[in-house]
Structure formats: C-alpha cells, structure tokens
Design a protein around this nucleic acid. Sequence first.
DNA 1: CCTGCTACCTGATGGC
DNA 2: TGCCATCAGGTAGCAG
Length: 276
Amino acid sequence: MPELPEVEAVAVTLRPLVRGKTIRRCRIIHSIAVRPPAGYGEKRAARQIESQLKGRKILEVERLGKYLLLRFERGFVALHFRLDGQLVWFADSKLSGHIDVAFHMDRGTLGFVDRRHFGRVQWLERIADSKGIDQLGVDPLSKEFTVGCLENLLSSSKRPLKEFLLEQDKIAGIGNIYSSESLWRARLDPRRRAYRVTPAEARRLHKAIVDVLRRALECCLDPAPDFRNPDWWFQGLENILRAYDREGLRCRRCKGRIRRIEQGGRSTYACLKCQK
DNA sequence: CCTGCTACCTGATGGC
DNA sequence: TGCCATCAGGTAGCAG
C-alpha cells in the first residue's frame, strides 16, 4: 500500500476496526519484518515487541507520511509497507496464508503481510526513536502545506522535480506514482530543477499535488480496503492515472505520447510535449 | 551537506 | 514449456 492515499485509506478503514481494542498477544512469525535498520538484532527486537504489546489498548490509528501508527497510552507500533506490504484481518483465530506479524485482539486478528520482506513493524517508545518518522516533512494534505511552503522547499533544492517530490523529509507521502501524476497535471517537465520553478508554476504544482492525492484517496476509499479478503487490493487506480505506467499511450491532454524515462534509477512517466 | 549507487527480498512478466 | 533478464508503488547506508 505504498503511497499516501493508499496508507490513508487503510488508516481510515482500520480505525473503527481496532480502535479501543486490546492486543492480547503479538506474534512475530517472520522476524525479518521487525529487523532494525542496521540489520542485526531482529530476534531481540521480536521479543521486545511481543512483550511490549501484550495487553496494550490501541488508542488511535494514525498515518504519518507512508507510515501507519498504532498509538497506545505509552508508545507506538509503526508499520511501513514499503512496496508490497499489506494488512489482513481474521475474524476468528484461524490464520491462513503468509503472515509476518499477527496482532491478536479481543475479537479478531490483524496480520501484517509482506512476502518480499521489505516492509517493517517497529515498536517505538516515542516518535523520535524512528529517524524515518522523525524527519518526515510536511503532510501535503494538511493545512500547513501552502503554496508558500512549497515555494520555500522548491527554492532550496537543486534536484530534478521528480526526485524532489520523492524526498520524504520535504513533503511526506508522495511516491513514484503520484510524483509522475502531479507533474503531469502541473504540466511540468520532471527533469526541471526544483529551484528554477517560477511562482506561477509552483502554484500549479501545489494544486496538482493536492488534487492528485485527494482524487486518489477518494478512489482508494471506494471501494474501501477489505482486509478480510487476503487477495484484496485497491481497485480502479488505473482509471485515474494519466502518466504512470502509460508508456507509449496518448497523452490525455495534447495527444503526444507518454514516455518513460529513468531518474535516480527509477521510472518516470511524462508527456514531454506538454510538460515543460 | 549533497548526490549517486547498491543492497535489501520475492514474484510476475515477457522475450527467446 | 523452460529459462533468463527485467521490472516492481521504498528507503537506508555508504562512498565520494
């Protein structure tokens, strides 16, 4: 559930399901899912999470950037889905399929699943204990994300716009799909340097980012995530995409062709005819 | 500080 | 069909 809209949709949908519930037991099935960044100590981290979570009540479900947080009276669990992580819900205690971490609640079990094992589950005493979370930039759907705020961020970066948008410590939550989509909508060339964007272009980009993320969130919530179905995934996102994964197809605006280019080792999709 | 590269993992897909 | 290469919605760590 990679980018902001997907994680937000999961947070919104999960909230009523687990808020107020007590975790009776947390079981780490694949300890790689709790492996700390340094890469060692995953067994110890697993024991720590299991003992910390026993009997704790979930006060709230929150999203910070692409992180999903379960907040307790003291401490947090932070989930990061990276590329392929997802959540599943079992109404009874019979689990099935590949589960990395199981949170057994009063009634039902929440499972963190990631066959690829990029995703992570961490126990945090406080937010600042996670460098990744602590350093997140402004949330693009918050009221703090103004045109002026974006202008400031743009002016202090020499990176190409596409790479700029991926930096989580500037704007938190945009990934490879919605960076391409935002730049298409703003009619800006992904290779342009951030600090060279004019005020009028910054205004366009601001609106594009907010519109693209809002629209994607709506789409992610209709239909809402169905954690009970292990094969569940977001439906219909292809229909709202205008650039991402559309290499060779016609631009919906100018009838040029969408091109795929490589930036920072990753794919960017753009119409180089109308994105200047 | 910034930038570019690699590693981390597994599975799906497409060409030959 | 089988095999191999390539690609995937992300980020941390490292060297320069």
